[in-house]
Structure formats: C-alpha cells, structure tokens
Design a protein around this nucleic acid. Structure first.
Lengths: 191, 191
DNA sequence: TCGATTCATTTACATATGTAAACGAATCAA
DNA sequence: TTGATTCGTTTACATATGTAAATGAATCGA
C-alpha cells in the first residue's frame, strides 16, 4: 500500500485520513500472463492499481483485428475508465502481458467517497486531467510524426517493452502492419 | 450568463452561491473571424465559454503545415487546456472560424475557487473526464475507421460545418490531403 | 466591371504501406 | 529429441494516398 500512497501523492496531495478510507476499498489480486482485467462488452465495475507487470489495452475492428491502444507499465492505474465513467458497456479490453500484481477496488465505492473527501475529488480531477494529457500527447504524435519516429519514442519510453511483448503488438500500437514495422527496423539497422 | 449556467449544470450540478462567485471571473468579449483565442508558444492564462461561433484548434508540423485537431461549436468550453493545466508553453493555437461571442476568465482565478467550492472541483473533474472521453472517442475513430467513414461522422455531427469552413480544413481534420478528400467526395456522389 | 485571389477538383506520377504467402529461427511440449 | 507452434522477416504484388501542377469556378475588392 505504501507504493500506492506514494504514487497517488505524487499526483495530488492526499491526507492520511482520506487514504485510510480509500485503502479499505482495495484488495490485492494476481493476474497471470494473458488473463484479462477488463473485457469487451461487459459493464466495468473495477479500477486497479498495477503494482507490478505490464497490461495492454486493445480493441477490435469489424474484421476482428486487434488494435493495441495503450501499454500500462507498473506503477499505473488501470481499468476501463470510459466504461466506469459513462456506465456504458466497455469497448476496450485490458489483458496482462506479464504476470501482474494489482490492487483492485469497486469504482462505485470510490465514487461514494468523493462527497466526503474533497481531496479525493481533487485527486480524481488530477487523474482525469492526466489521462487527458496522455491522450492529447498521443494524438499529437500520431498526427505529426511518422511511424519511424513513434517507434523510437516508444523504445525510449519503455526500453524493456520489446524484450517482453511480441513485435506485432508493437506494430499494432504504432498503427502499422508487422511487415511495415519490420521494414522500419531493417532500415534503422542499416543506418 | 444563463446559457453558461445551464451548460455547466448539465455537466455537473452547481450551487447558486458557487456560480455567483464563478461568474464574477468572466467577462464577455468578441472575436472576429480569423482572430486568435490562443496562440502557439505563449503561456496560456485564459479559459473561455464559447457562446456563439466556431473555433478551430490546430498545430503545425515541422514543415509548418497545419493540422486541424478539433472544431469547437458553441456552446462549448474553449482554451488551451493542456497549457493551463501544465503551465507549459502552448502547442495548440485556437482561432475563430466565424465571428464569436465568448465569456473569458483567468484560469488561475477559477483554480483558486476550487478550494472553497467542492462542487466546482467536481465540475472540474467532470469536465476533465468529458475531455478525456472525447479524445478517446476520436482515438478509436482514427484507429478503426477509414477517412470515408470519419468524414460521414463529421458531417452528421456538425451538419453546418461544411458550409462555413473550407474543405482543406476538413481534410486536415480527417488526417488526409485535400486531394484525397476530393476523391472521397466524388466517390460518394457517384453512389 | 474586371482583375486578383481563394479554393475545390482533377490529372499524372511517385511512393508508402497493406495483404498474402513463404521461409526460417526460436521456443515449447510431449 | 522431435514435431508443432509461434513469431519475425522477406518477397511479390496491389492499392491507397501524397505531391505537384493545371484548371476552372466562385468570390472579393478596387
């Protein structure tokens, strides 16, 4: 729990009393590689704090092909945020890419605490803002940079990720085919 | 101000006392077509409520070519949100595409009110969440749909927009060249 | 009214990228 | 150890899309 508290505190100061209430909502679980934290079509109820491991978020197009939207590398908050907020069916699956340790809570319980603890509401605001910033950052990268550069950025940001997950996941994250990623990798080796 | 209050109330209930304090921060301004609400490289200070008109958000790539990121159609909140949150220089310009009526406030004044008014903090959270949802929606559209379908969606969402702004702005929003948009339009006329 | 400007379209061409299939290396399980 | 499986790469080919330039229509200002 210490790791969790520090993680939250770095986002927004949280009082001890607040964290005490908050932590009561969370329980540790383990996820094996390839198990799911959130599934498509379900109404998501749970939010998690990823203590250890890597999780991918992905969705499927009409032909059933996967598009990897995001990688969560611990420490990170995970969960089908959009489904939790909108109470609509989840479009985005989240799956463990490695064995994971996670603290899990019912999101409704946390929402119920917002009324009582203003600093928790503030934390919620900061997290939403942070999610927004991440999205905008990716939007700009997708619009401004070609796949070569996005690949380099990904490798800088998560140097270990390539040793852990297959190339075709990375290609999908970059929005290109595995063939194209292979071409990019070859070109980069030559120079 | 009524329109503004109703707009906010639809996002999150706001008490009269809170709104009274809040509205003191805002002043009406007008923007002529092509004038800027936010500029690149500046440290943004102001947030706005767009009462009337259309504003585009865009940024430039290395060659100085514009990419239209978003269209704000009244009623809407505008402002360089990322710069306001991070206090970093703004990367995204916002420019009036039509004559506009806007309520403007110093963002720092609003942030100062967060401490006092819990319901305002909640509103801030909801707005951040809403921004996030919008971004995720666009991310999914960009990843899953080809330009043809994204074009149709844009036309459904803003039926008037094509009569107001040039095609090459729309092409840029869709992430394609004007040539390609023209090809798509021709194909759609034929069928 | 007339010339200039803006803008959508079109054409020709080059290129980037996807798809499908084959191949081979590495890994894994029996 | 061996056969199967997974996965990255490569090849061949088709196609989508960008760029550059020309054209023509519409609009605007003097």
């Amino acid at each position: 729990m210490k790791q969790f508290k520090e993680y939250l505190n770095r986002i927004s100061k949280i009082e001890d009393a607040t964290f005490n209430e908050l932590q009561k909502c969370f329980k540790p679980i383990k996820l094996r590689k390839n198990q799911f934290f959130a599934r498509e079509e379900e109404y998501s109820k749970q939010i998690g704090f990823l203590k250890k491991g890597i999780v991918r978020a992905f969705f499927l197009n009409q032909e059933g092909k996967e598009y990897n939207k995001q990688f969560f590398v611990a420490p990170s908050i995970i969960g089908a945020y959009t489904s939790l907020i909108t109470k609509q069916p989840n479009k985005i699956a989240q799956q463990a890419l490695t064995d994971c340790q996670i603290l899990v809570a019912d999101f409704s319980k946390i929402e119920a605490l917002y009324d009582e603890f203003h600093d928790l509401e503030r934390l919620g605001r900061k997290i939403a803002e942070f999610y927004f910033l991440e999205k905008e950052q990716k939007e700009i990268e997708m619009a401004l940079l070609d796949a070569d550069k996005r690949y380099l950025i990904l490798r800088e940001r998560f140097p270990t990720i390539e040793t852990i997950i297959p190339q075709y996941y990375i290609a999908s994250y970059l929005g290109i085919s595995p063939t194209q990623l292979s071409r990019i990798r070859r070109k980069m080796q030559q120079s």
